[in-house]
Structures are given as C-alpha cells and as structure tokens.
Simulated scan of single mutants.
Amino acid sequence: MQFLFLGDVVGEMGIQLVEQYLPELKKEFKPQVTIVNGENTTKSGRGITQKLFKDLMKAGAGVVTLGNHAWNNQEIFTFINQTPNLLRPLNYPGTKVPGHGYATLNINGTQVAVINLQGRVFMETTDDPFAAIDRLVNQLHAKGIKVIFVDFHAETTSEKKAMALFLDGRVSAVVGTHTHVQTNDPQILTNGTAFLTDAGMTGPATGVIGMEYQPVIQKFLTARPNRFAVQTTGPGILSGCVVNINPQTGHAKKVQTILIDHDHPYHNV
C-alpha cells in the first residue's frame, strides 16, 4: 500500500506546484492514500481557506493536514467541523477543540488512519503529544487498525526522532513537517516504522523557508519585529516522500524522498 505525502504547501506558488506535479506523481507512484500539509497555503503563508482546501483536493489530495498555523485564518472555523479529511493537530488543548485530529479511511477493505500531531519544543503550548498519540494508537489498535500514518508537525529533530522511536512498531510512518527543509534521513526503524525528520516544503525556493528574504535578514540584523511576506516570484520547490506499507502488518517496507526543483527536475515532465 503506497502513501504519497507532500510537505508544507506555501502560498500561491505552492498551490500551483501541487496542481502541476501531484497528478503526475500519482500516475508514477500510484498511491492509495495521498496526504498534503496545507497549513501555509494562504497568501500570507498562515492558515488555510475552504477554497484552498478544495483546490488541494481537486489536485489529488485525499487528506490535508495542518499545524501551528491551523487557526490563523478565521474562516476555518466555518467549515472544519464538517470536513473530516482536513486535520488539525490531535493534541491542541481544551475539551471542545474544533475539527478532527485524525481520519480513518477504508482502502480496498483495509482500515487506515492518518494522524496530525504537533510538537511542544520551541512551539506554542499544546497538550503532551506523546500521551495524546499513545491513547489514540491504543484505541486504533483495539479496533484492528494497523496502518497508521503520522504527520508530526514539530520544530526540533530530537523531538521528532524521539516520537518516531516511541511509536516504532506501533504505527506505519512518522513524517515530520514544519521546518520547510527536507532532511536526508529516510529510514525504516528497527520495529518497522518509516521515519523522515522533515518532508520539506512546496513553494518558493529562493526565499527563507518560503518568505521574502530581505525582511527576514533585517530582523536578524536589528532584532526588531518585521512584517514577513510570502515570496511570489522565482523558482519553486516541491518536497515530500513516498512510503510503501504492508497492509497486513502495518509495517513499512520502503520510504523514499521526493524533491523537485531547479537542480532536480521532474523526469516525467
């Protein structure tokens, strides 16, 4: 069973890259499940709208995950409760959090779960991600669900690796998002869980993780607040990964990164 995952989609250029390449990637890899992180899709790079969610779905996404910018666009509160395949982090605090932290899908008779989770190191305060996912994974296993894909939206490599080892053998894949920089460490852990520290981003390639670089440099130079804007010109980058999973055991068989940019042109286009 193939899972195709695309890292944080940033701004209009990110949407355009998804629309351009996702159909071709799906023809090549023939995934049963396609997941796209869409928390940076607005023009400001913060949050998502219903139209942008529909654009990602029309381009070929089956599930859209979010992260620390989930609530930055207020429109989300008007539709997230009625949109089960748009996921916000499972461990947001509170007893009445809008939306859904995970989704279950029936793929040719096999029940599959996709989970969105957020880290706490150098991030906004959330409930303990380890405790939250431990409870949920136990519940999913009790229902006989073995194929479980986790988008762990976190800042530090240590927290991401610790989460992957904590879940090794209990979930099929832990793929990191948030830093917008693809890491070169796709691996299958000892007990069968696929892990990638960060899938990278999909959007403008020449800015600072998707933002125009001049205001970012000025903030570093002056230590004063500055308004950031998503870069809208120049070359783009598309990053992600493909994970092959045994549907009987829920263990990963293979994980590989996807990278399309100026130096890595897509061979099928």
Rank of each mutant, 00 (worst) to 15 (best):
V64M: 06
F166V: 04
V174W: 06
Y102E: 11
D128M: 05
V10C: 05
G192Y: 04
A205M: 10
T83M: 13
D55P: 01
E24F: 06
M163S: 06
Q139F: 07
D151K: 04
E12L: 11
V171C: 07
P23H: 08
Q32V: 01
A131V: 11
K160R: 10
E155F: 08
C241Y: 02
G62F: 00
Q111G: 07
Q182E: 10
Q74L: 12
P89G: 14
N73D: 15
V112P: 02
I209H: 05
V242Q: 03
T126E: 07
P93K: 14
G240V: 05
Y266Q: 03
L221Q: 09
Q50V: 02
Q231D: 13
N268C: 10
N81F: 11
L136K: 04
G236Y: 00
T249E: 02
N138H: 11
M211C: 10
E39D: 13
V33Q: 00
Q256Y: 12
G94I: 08
M123S: 15
D263I: 04
H251M: 09
V174K: 01
A199S: 15
N138T: 14
F122D: 12
E28F: 13
P89D: 13
V114G: 00
A131R: 14
P215E: 01
M123D: 14
A132P: 01
L117R: 07
G210A: 11
Q248A: 13
N68R: 05
K27F: 03
A142L: 12
V181T: 14
L221S: 09
Q248Y: 05
Q248E: 13
L52T: 03
G203W: 03
T206I: 11
G99M: 09
V230Q: 00
G101W: 00
D8F: 12
E28L: 15
F149I: 09
K143N: 11
F3A: 01
